[in-house]
Amino acid sequence: MRIILLLLIATFFVMPLSNVEAQKAKTIDELAKMFDSSPCKSCHAEIYAQWEKSHHARPLMGVKGGLMLTPLALKKGEKGSTAFSEDDPKKMKIGNFPCFKCHLPQAVTHAEDSVAVELTEALLAKDSEKVAKLQITCIVCHNEKAIIHKRELGGPEKGVLYSVKEVTSHPDATFKTVKKSAIMNNSVYCGQCHGLGPNLEFDQAFQCANLYGSYLHNYVSGGGTQSCQECHMKKGDHLIAPNFNDEKQTSELLASALSLHVETLGYEWLRKANAYTPKVIVTTKITSNAGHRIPDG
């Protein structure tokens, strides 16, 4: 009887999670819950606070609270609509939001089309609170996107987190183990989303970030050796600056990456006898120590 009781208790605790993982999310709340990282906060408070201020915590909100996916939600043919828009919000599917590839990768693998419909309606209603529930959480990066050698290493395992170092016993009810990721301290990890250029794999090509392309073809090719993480995640900082909502911090970061040198010359130009033209010449030189083009994302 005691064994049966223990089994029942174990089943009670285990079933909700395995059910969620087996099924796809039907609502925004279900998807948010599936990738909820709030339990991480109790042990990783500083990292969690950094992440909360980051663009990863508001991937659908753009800069300063904008709802960047709104053009996709507009009715097809309406001013400002896109090739991905439909004539009825109810027709919207996950595939109508190609931006999910990077801005909400868990939606591609774990959400029903009903989530796309709900998001469309939320965008049209300017329901920022609902849209803000969709985040690139700890679990997205430390599980979903942690492996790029799936043929060799297999896909991300359930109940396992991936990080730069192994933790054999991780005190969490769901993620009991942390395995060492082969790529998490490598720029290619960030390059999964911070792009190479046009996304040509879609039936309607589009282009977002080019940043990783610039890193490979202009920084590495010029002898650069630092990784994205070495500059943007010093001491494990999960803000991963810039945070464009913080104007002062963004200005300081840009000033540290770009230097400006100015020289001036005043003289009187002589083109023909006795006809002087007073001139001012200003020469500027901007140099960058960033590992990618500026601007990019």
Partner: peptide
């Protein structure tokens, strides 16, 4: 991003490449 397909010109500030200008 939903409207762009490819860069046709790039005047951005690239690594290892100083931007020099002369204003007269």
């Amino acid at each position: 991003a939903q409207w762009k397909v490819a860069n046709i010109r790039d005047t951005s500030i690239q690594p290892h490449q100083a931007k020099k200008e002369t204003f007269e």
